[in-house]
């Protein structure tokens, strides 16, 4: 299939990116990641647990099988985010990072000023930056101009499950972006993911929608199909919306 996603020079077949947090247990996470078909999975960077009896994520996620995308979750300052990225690159040997600089602990909305400043520093340091941003088209353009490899506008607050709150802004971002646009955060249902792809987005990133579902493995499969269906629907070119009907069956040959 030729419809691939290219980020920072690497090509991927799956347009669904999945997080590794909040699963009930590691076996469920492993099965959910498998069911999702994701090739890129996000991870966080934290102090190693010096208690060696506890399991660790890397016991269950093979960096040879998945592309690990470290995030800078819980970073509220530009400096913390930049420091985390440098540590992440050293730990994982890849320069691709999901950059988050959080502005508020209730909404977890990005502090866009600090985000842009951090992005510029990281691009200068040779990172492939995927910034978690809001749905402001001006911000998206600034991040792209700063050299980010993609822009990742949120659909709604992290974990809120509200779906795309402002599809109009996302469409405006899509109109001018020359880098991949990946909706990140706030997806709740499979239809939310399909809607993102039908708008023309290049991918969707989600964690809670899968990990927090009652059956994460089943939901992961649903998301895989939704992203695929939404992408096909977009590429297929939908019919226009009309107020009145246009008959599907011919009027010629009627016998009444």
């Amino acid at each position: 299939m030729g419809d691939t996603l290219t980020i920072g020079g690497k090509t991927f077949r799956s347009r669904l990116l999945v997080g590794t947090g909040k699963y009930p247990d590691y076996p469920t996470m492993v099965r959910a990641l498998e069911a999702s078909g994701a090739e890129i999975v996000t991870v966080a960077v934290r102090r190693v647990n010096l208690d060696r009896t506890k399991e660790s994520l890397l016991d269950h996620v093979d960096p040879k099988k998945y592309t690990l995308l470290p995030n800078t979750a819980a970073c509220y300052t530009e400096d913390d985010a930049v420091r985390t990225c440098h540590l992440a690159r050293e730990a994982g040997m890849s320069s691709m990072v999901k950059l988050e600089v959080i502005g508020d602990e209730n909404t977890l909305f990005p502090d866009t000023e600090a985000l842009l400043s951090a992005a510029k520093r990281l691009v200068r340091d040779g990172f492939v930056v995927l910034p978690y941003t809001n749905d402001d088209p001006i911000m998206a353009r600034k991040l792209e101009d700063a050299g980010c490899a993609a822009v990742m506008p949120l659909a709604a607050p992290i974990g809120s499950g509200l779906g795309i709150r402002n599809p109009f802004n996302i469409r405006i971002i899509l109109e001018s972006a020359k880098v991949p646009v990946i909706v990140d955060a706030g997806v709740g249902s499979a239809s939310d993911a399909a809607v993102a792809m039908e708008l023309g987005c290049d991918g969707v990133l989600m964690n809670t929608a899968i990990a927090g579902a009652r059956d994460p493995v089943l939901m992961a499969g649903a998301m895989r199909e939704a992203v695929s269906a939404g992408r096909k629907s977009f590429l297929a070119g939908r019919i226009p919306k009309k107020l009145y009907a246009t008959a599907s069956s011919p009027l010629d040959g009627t016998f009444f």
């Binding site: 947090g21 009930p24 934290r46 647990n49 819980a74 009652r214």
Partner: peptide, 20 residues
């Protein structure tokens, strides 16, 4: 049967816990 799991037991980091 309802898939109850406490937040603490789930995979992944809890907010700022473990940040250097």
């Amino acid at each position: 049967r309802v898939g109850e799991t406490s937040d603490r037991e789930r995979t992944g980091c809890r907010g700022k816990e473990g940040t250097p």
